[in-house]
Design a protein around this nucleic acid. Structure first.
Lengths: 348, 348
DNA sequence: CTGTTAGCGCCTTCAG
DNA sequence: CTGAAGGCGCTAACAG
């Protein structure tokens, strides 16, 4: 026989009220409290009411960690993105948040800044905390696994690169770029310059690929200038283009921010848009509509991507049955504004 | 004597590896594994190495919920904001993320869309999951408590309204607006119209208050037009102003988005900025610098606010000692660009 | 319908 | 330096 030890007391003085306190005050067992509060099993209505009352009076709230431990459910989703700021990612977050919240799920977010090591750390840290994962992965070589293998929970990828059989849903950047070039071609433009994004960034790569593909399909010469997806680089790239001997018919900026940078550069240089040169972007950020002239662009609905990602994730866990949600690409929408008037439309 | 029951088995087939598995394979007790892995207490170096090895081989990772339950630490911070998208909030998130990550803390985020009930739900849901809270609260009447009382963890508020002795750090919107008006006055402007933001939104309120205060101090007549902090409303408000008989010397838009909307409206109407009317905004969003003309504005460093909020939170928990971080207001910075030329500077 | 009790996975005394 | 065992707060069998 061992002696009775002093009770284990790591608890601090301001201990939260537990299910035991409620049980004691309500004169029932903890099991009954649990059942009453979770509407699980059958509990006499009178008892349920009393328990509810006591719980409220005590300001009782179940300890999520404990609940998680014993029921193996965390009610939270992990979101791992390259970064958390900017129009695209914050809209994406909003979409994710909307659907997650409507299903009573929390969001544990993390960013990896495009670095594989940070991504690994983030995923590792999320292990056991989340019941599902939405990941836009760091750049990785085509052959290399994206590091999303041993996760142990359902996950959906927001990259084109479909990692190890994971569900994937992504913006069709390549298709959008192809469509944009075709639009320019249909308007009679032939010398089309493209301002690309940061090397290796998936979106930038996909858009440039689309541009190259569409130009090649038409047997036209490619004209790619480097950019960085921000206004400054759009401004700079455009200035560079203007310094060339041959002026393009149209400039296709890899995103709207760069397109706006271009627009200001062109305006400053006295080059008229769209009379002297057509200008198009990609993303359809709010300002695209208010620029002067309005910017023709390819709308990307990041919030919708987020919503679909969560639904896809939930449907894969069986939490919801949503037959409309399927892995694949989310199409972009061409938005035609004044910055790219028809070349065969002289009065533009 | 009770009969031996069948072992409790809610675990699914794909059970994660636990500390017990590591202990067994390493031929030691779970306590030793715990000590070895957490560098707590003394463990023979050889044993530590072997445990480490086995743990790695098994891809063991401690279960956060269990750890939380027994050690009462979650290593996560809760962030509750009105919304998650937009330039300001996403920059704020980035700042918070930076510092949190550098301290090995996770972020549980939630938005309440300015609604008190959603905020309460969010805070309730975070209880027990987080060790600290950063909150920008929903609009609440001056007297009413902000609903941040019974949280039970250290918290910092990002509102001016200092709730129940909580630490507060916020952008000095009012001071910034006052400074902006003074700047306009110093440039010789007197008829200054102000485009406000959504009613009740704390930032909007503070900025309008600053404008009114500064105008009153100078004995000038106020001229406030309603807006909604987006480009469209800026455009509309400006059009409304132009329809008035008397044109203002200067238009002070409550934020840059509206200022840009104004700029386009003015351009379309053939009104020159800054020759015919000066235009200033608030926020210093990236595009402000690339607008034509460049937009004079009041820079708000949201990321810095986020960084400071986390540091303030951590210093209040004693996690870090950072004497430089103190509650209070974060000053804004006047950024002078071409949209508001000196009235007494004719060649502008 | 309700109470009892065995864990969930981990950390932490205490004894050896 | 290491092992055994209790307990964190809760849920889920099972017995009554």
């Amino acid at each position: 026989m061992t002696l009775k030890r002093p009770p284990y007391q790591p608890r601090d003085a301001t201990r939260a009220v537990t299910i035991r306190d409620v049980a004691r005050d309500a004169g029932v067992s903890v099991a009954t409290v649990s059942r009453a509060l979770n509407h699980r099993g059958h509990v006499a209505e009178a008892v349920r009411l009393r328990v509810r009352e006591v719980a409220d009076a005590l300001r009782y709230a179940p300890h999520p960690g404990a609940r998680n431990l014993s029921s193996r459910s965390t009610h939270t989703l992990g979101v791992v993105l390259p970064v958390l700021h900017g129009e695209f990612y914050s809209s994406l977050m909003r979409g994710i948040d909307q659907v997650a919240r409507s299903h009573g799920l929390h969001l544990l977010v993390s960013s990896h800044h495009g670095r594989r090591d940070e991504q690994d750390a983030a995923l590792q840290a999320l292990r056991g905390r989340v019941e599902g994962l939405i990941v836009m992965s760091a750049a990785h070589a085509p052959g290399e696994d994206a590091g999303l293998l041993h996760i142990g929970v359902p996950a959906v990828s927001l990259d084109d690169a479909d990692a190890a059989g994971m569900s994937t849903i992504a913006i069709d950047n390549r298709g959008g770029a192809v469509a944009m070039v075709r639009h320019l071609l249909s308007r009679g433009h032939r010398r089309i310059a493209f301002i690309g994004g940061p090397a290796g960034q998936p979106e930038a790569v996909a858009r440039e690929l689309g541009y190259r593909q569409a130009m090649a399909d038409f047997g036209l010469e490619e004209w790619v200038v480097e950019g960085a997806f921000d206004e400054a680089s759009g401004h700079g790239a455009c200035a560079g283009i203007l310094r060339q001997g041959l002026r393009p018919d149209a400039v296709f900026a890899g995103n709207d921010l760069m397109a706006l940078g271009c627009l200001f550069a062109l305006t400053q240089a006295g080059v008229r848009v769209p009379q002297d040169v057509a200008l198009v972007g990609f993303d359809d950020i709010p300002l695209a509509a208010y620029a002067h002239p309005g910017l023709t662009t390819m709308r990307v609905d990041a919030a919708e991507l987020g919503r679909r990602a969560v639904r896809l994730l939930l449907s894969s866990t069986g939490a919801i049955a949503d037959p409309d949600i399927e892995p694949g690409l989310l199409a972009t929408t061409l938005v035609v504004r004044a910055s790219c008037a028809a070349a065969e439309d002289p009065e533009a």
